[in-house]
Amino acid sequence: MNFDLRLPLGLLFTLFGGMLVIYGLISDPAIYARSLGYNVNLGWGAVMLAFGLVMLALALRARRNRP
């Protein structure tokens, strides 16, 4: 089928990861008291961003290789 799921999947998690990373950088550290002092938005957001970018890269590579 001519529809690569990795494209929307990559896009969604790039957006989610990006939003959380940015929020992690600008948010008040006090809100991380409940997450035991870890800035989980920044850390986990970066993981999601990386996952999203890898999915996008795979989708785009597949698209380029298709005649």
């Binding site: 959380l20 929020y23 997450s35």
Partner: peptide
């Protein structure tokens, strides 16, 4: 609700 800050909580 106990552990996740705004942002991850939404997720």
């Amino acid at each position: 609700g106990h552990y996740l800050p705004p942002g991850l909580l939404g997720l």
